[in-house]
């Protein structure tokens, strides 16, 4: 029988995928830990120890990217959890039009990020953009959303939520639909209304979905580059630079060692947040 297992489920099946994955994902990841400590022009590299990291953490423009990355990740995943949950509750309730509403919220997930970024940079323009035009009609002078250092990063984060909340919603919908109806009926029997049902049934039993949404949007938020790059280019100044946009800028400027050091910083940041978080979530799921 062991012989059959070996022949039928041969480890050779791993080989083609393993070669591609090994050469184009694992190898670059491993060697990044060498090149991050060098001055590097793609042909020659000189070991310079911790200089790249020292530069990364001492230069204001680079250091602020660390903070921005965290702000961006926390804001986007927080909003996706709250809004995704609310939308999912609405879209699993007894209202009609569910199919069309689900479709409308989900479609932006499938649209290219560059297209979304360009469209919203126009809609958010300070003078004639639709958003400020509407605000002006009700007597509010809207800020220069993308040109003001205090609003730039959060404006991009809001667009990120607009584009990604549909995915959070469908994950929550799947989670809510898997809750047995009996629980809701039991609460109803005891005279509990909609809020009690949500508080005591939906919220705790949709916890796996919440964990998934947090993990996914956190991973995405920490790496986020394309939307920021098309909407602000990291500006004004360095106000909306994230680690991923710094990696690109340093690469463009030819500082390959420094760019790779940025990659290593991002790797470490993602690892110290995501791995413990996912372990914690897994342990909580067993308790349920």
């Amino acid at each position: 029988m062991r012989g059959t297992t070996k022949r039928t489920y041969s480890y050779w099946f791993y080989a083609p995928a393993g070669v591609v994955y090994g050469i184009f994902f694992i190898l670059p990841t491993v060697i990044s830990f060498y090149f991050a400590f060098t001055r590097w022009d793609l042909f020659e590299s000189h070991w310079i120890g911790l200089d790249n990291f020292r530069q990364f953490f001492s230069e204001q423009s680079l250091r602020s990217s660390l903070r921005n990355t965290l702000v961006y990740a926390v804001t986007t995943s927080g909003l996706k959890v709250v809004l995704g949950m609310m939308l999912a509750v609405l879209l699993t309730s007894s209202i009609r039009l569910k199919a069309i509403l689900r479709a409308l919220t989900f479609f932006p997930v499938l649209v290219s990020t560059v297209a979304v970024g360009i469209t919203f940079s126009v809609l958010l323009q300070p003078d004639f953009g639709i958003i400020n035009t509407v605000l002006a009609k009700v007597g509010i002078t809207g800020p220069d959303w993308l040109g003001n250092p205090t609003t730039a990063l959060l404006s991009v984060a809001a667009v990120d939520v607009w584009k990604g909340v549909g995915l959070a919603t469908v994950i929550y919908i799947a989670g809510i639909l898997s809750i047995p109806r009996d629980y809701y009926e039991a609460v109803e029997m005891d005279g509990g209304g909609g809020w009690t049902q949500f508080r005591n049934v939906t919220l705790p039993l949709a916890r796996p979905a919440t964990f998934t949404v947090i993990l996914l949007s956190f991973i995405g938020g920490l790496r986020s580059f394309d939307l920021i790059w098309t909407m602000t280019g990291g500006g004004p100044g360095f106000a909306s630079d994230t680690i991923a946009s710094v990696i690109y800028k340093q690469y463009q400027a030819g500082f390959y060692g420094l760019s790779t050091a940025g990659n290593v910083v991002l790797f470490v940041l993602v690892s110290i947040i995501i791995f413990p978080l996912s372990r914690y979530f897994n342990s909580r799921e067993v308790d349920l």
Binding site: Y11, Y14, Y21, I23, F24, F25, I26, L27, P28, T29, I31, S32, F35, W40, L42, I219, L222, R223, A244, I247, Y248, Y251, Y256, S259, T260, N263, V264, L266, F267, V270, S271, I274, F275, S278
Partner: peptide, 29 residues
């Protein structure tokens, strides 16, 4: 073996790709 493969798959979901080293590998090939 499956455990190792599963760990590698999980890493692929989480770890951001190392950009310039990937360019270096592509250039060598």
């Amino acid at each position: 073996v499956a455990n190792v493969v599963n760990a590698l798959i999980l890493s692929g979901l989480i770890i951001p790709p190392a950009i310039v080293p990937t360019i270096w590998v592509l250039q060598k090939l």
